[in-house]
């Protein structure tokens, strides 16, 4: 008998602390499968954030860091610059990456650090109990926007993938989702491509994954999935925003 499905080597065999209906578990698996398939596990280093995935080092079966809030791209920069032979990835949520860690992600991307960033966007602070994030949608009710996010007071949700795609350097930047089988297959392809590009020492790689937070959104998992499709997907459009092949050398740009 031939095994056609099993537990990825790059995941530890243990129960996670994630809430029912949360997509972190799926995204962890996609990352782990990608690392396995590319044969990178023994030289991969994960950098966990502060947020719901703070304990990611308990789930990924590879050497890991736990970074301070928002600084994972700086930690990854230090690790990768000191050991360019390692495969270094960060796994960050939207409070961590898009708020307190905005400087670190923008500059890591702008320096073209050859790391992979997995950015899980669920439009809310999960671990601290459902506060407004920079990615919270207009009108979305959270524990610190009890009347709905007022864009006059709190600005508009930041589209990080689009923002990073404006930077001049070579990069792979994609936004995916992982709440249906088809979208999960596409998300896997993007994540695997990001790790493969890092393996080939190509460029900065960034995959944003739209995620649900049934607990803090106050919904059932099915309602959360519907809410994501109806509200997040029109604002955060899925797709590849930048390919390394889009890079135009300075000499060409200057004619």
């Amino acid at each position: 008998m031939k095994a056609i499905f099993g537990y990825p080597k790059s995941l530890q065999s243990r129960t996670t602390h994630y809430c029912p209906g949360c997509t972190h578990g799926v995204i962890h698996r996609l990352v782990a499968e990608s690392i396995d398939e590319l044969g990178l596990r023994e030289r991969t280093v994960a950098v966990a954030p502060v947020g719901c995935s703070v304990l990611a080092y308990n789930y990924f079966n590879c050497d890991s860091f736990e970074a301070s809030h928002g600084r994972a791209p700086a930690v990854a920069t230090g690790a990768k610059r000191c050991r360019p032979d390692l495969i270094v990835f960060t796994y960050q949520g939207d409070g961590d990456l898009a708020s307190i860690g905005m400087a670190e992600i923008v500059h890591a991307a702008n320096r073209g650090e050859k790391i992979t960033v997995i950015f899980v966007n669920n439009a809310i602070y999960g671990m601290t109990g459902g506060q407004m994030a920079p990615t919270t949608l207009p009108g979305q009710v959270t524990s610190t926007s009890p009347f709905g996010r007022d864009t006059e007071l709190a600005g508009w949700p930041i589209r990080v993938a689009e923002l990073l795609a404006t930077l001049r350097g070579k990069a792979y930047i994609a936004r995916v989702a992982a709440h249906t089988p088809l979208l999960t297959i596409k998300a896997k392809a993007a994540i695997r491509r990001a790790f493969d590009l890092q393996r080939r020492d190509e460029c900065f790689t960034f995959v944003e994954v739209l995620s649900t937070c049934p607990t803090n959104w106050g919904m059932t998992p099915n309602e959360a999935t519907e809410w994501l499709e109806r509200n997040m997907m029109p604002y955060y459009r899925l797709g590849v925003l930048k390919e390394p092949g889009d890079f135009v050398p300075y000499s060409v740009e200057r004619g």
């Binding site: 280093v45 950098v47 860091f65 970074a67 301070s68 600084r71 700086a74 930690v75 990854a76 920069t77 230090g78 690790a79 990768k80 610059r81 000191c82 050991r83 390692l86 670190e104």
Partner: peptide, 9 residues
């Protein structure tokens, strides 16, 4: 934090 990453490897 880069130092943290570099020392950590």
């Amino acid at each position: 934090n880069m130092l943290y990453g570099g020392a950590g490897v």
